[in-house]
């Protein structure tokens, strides 16, 4: 995926799909139960705290920012961290702290759009593929294979270049890299749930495929999708910032974190704060979603619980 790391869980998605023999998993080393609360492990708690904080910032960041994030202070260009400018200012005189606060909305908003588009494309295709089987399944899966078959950041680059730089085209470009995972994930779930007794029973009493999907399969397939989503928000934030970094994502003066890192790049030596703080914000956010995703997986998907 773009900047989505291929995690062991993703590897499992692929491994299941290409029918590679996997080693029987046997007894798990660390025993988790579904009832175990997400908040019990300190690292996961940290993740949740970060996610909550970033989400709050996405709503209120621009409001609580001490300075206007897009009105520069000419009297303080490249000023170091101080009481007035907590994280210093950038080459134009923007207050970096305010921009980081305001940028949460852009980063998170773009990530959510990316995943929304990915879901809208991926889930129906995955459901269709799993329910219909046969040649439809074959075609859909080969198409997802194609999208997974090459480095997604490069695909995103090609798309973003064609659409012209900007957050909207970045979001479209990145969603192209994320949807195949959801198609595969849901297809896998459909295939395994289809043969469950209760689903079989519903089929016998004449429930139509769409109803079957809505009432019986989707609710049960939800947990792995949620786990995947919680991880992917972080990766989508990272991928957006990456596109901004190479000039194809957010454009100045928008306070997207990747764009902020680019803006200060020539001042790495003379003003480290222009680079350090946006990067820390970015890292923490990705980390937060990652840890939360781990925690959710532990809580919801015991099969993969021991992988961390």
């Amino acid at each position: 995926m773009a900047h989505k790391m291929v995690t062991p869980a993703d590897a499992q998605i692929i491994q299941d799909d290409i029918g590679l023999p996997t080693i029987s998993r046997g007894q798990r080393f660390v025993h988790h139960t579904i009832t175990q609360n997400l908040l019990l492990r300190p690292v996961h708690l940290l993740g949740v705290v970060i996610v909550v904080a970033v989400t709050l910032l996405a709503f209120f960041g621009p409001v609580i920012a001490p300075h206007n994030p897009v009105i520069p202070d000419y009297t303080a260009m490249l000023a170091g961290p101080s009481a007035n400018h907590l994280f210093g200012t950038d080459p134009i005189g923007y207050d970096i702290f305010s921009r980081i606060l305001a940028g949460a909305r852009l980063s998170l908003g773009t990530a959510v759009s990316v995943l929304a588009i990915a879901l809208v494309i991926g889930l129906p295709l995955g459901a269709l593929s799993g329910m219909a089987g046969g040649w439809i399944d074959e075609v859909v899966m080969r198409v997802t294979d194609m999208f997974l078959a090459f480095p997604a950041l490069i695909l995103a680059l090609a798309i973003a270049a064609a659409l012209g730089p900007g957050l909207v085209s970045a979001a479209i470009a990145l969603s192209m890299a994320f949807w195949p995972w959801y198609a595969r994930l849901l297809r896998g779930q459909v295939l395994s749930l289809k043969n469950m007794d209760y689903v079989q029973a519903a089929t016998i009493i004449g429930t139509r495929p769409v109803g079957l999907m809505w009432r019986h399969i989707l609710p049960n397939a939800l947990s792995p999708i949620i786990v995947e989503l919680s991880m992917d928000v972080g990766y989508a934030v990272l991928a957006t910032a990456s596109l901004s970094f190479i000039g194809l994502g957010a454009q100045p003066p928008s306070p997207e974190w990747g764009a902020m890192i680019v803006a200060g790049r020539d001042y790495l030596r003379t003003a480290w704060w222009t680079e350090a703080f946006p990067g820390i914000a970015l890292t923490l956010t990705v980390l937060g979603f990652n840890l939360t995703g781990d925690g959710l997986r532990d809580a919801l998907d015991p099969r993969a619980a021991h992988i961390r």
């Binding site: 900047h3 995690t7 972080g234 990272l238 970094f245 890192i261 990067g279 890292t283 990652n290």
Partner: peptide, 8 residues
Amino acid sequence: GVALPAFW
């Protein structure tokens, strides 16, 4: 490792 942006 999974959270640090490579470019940063």
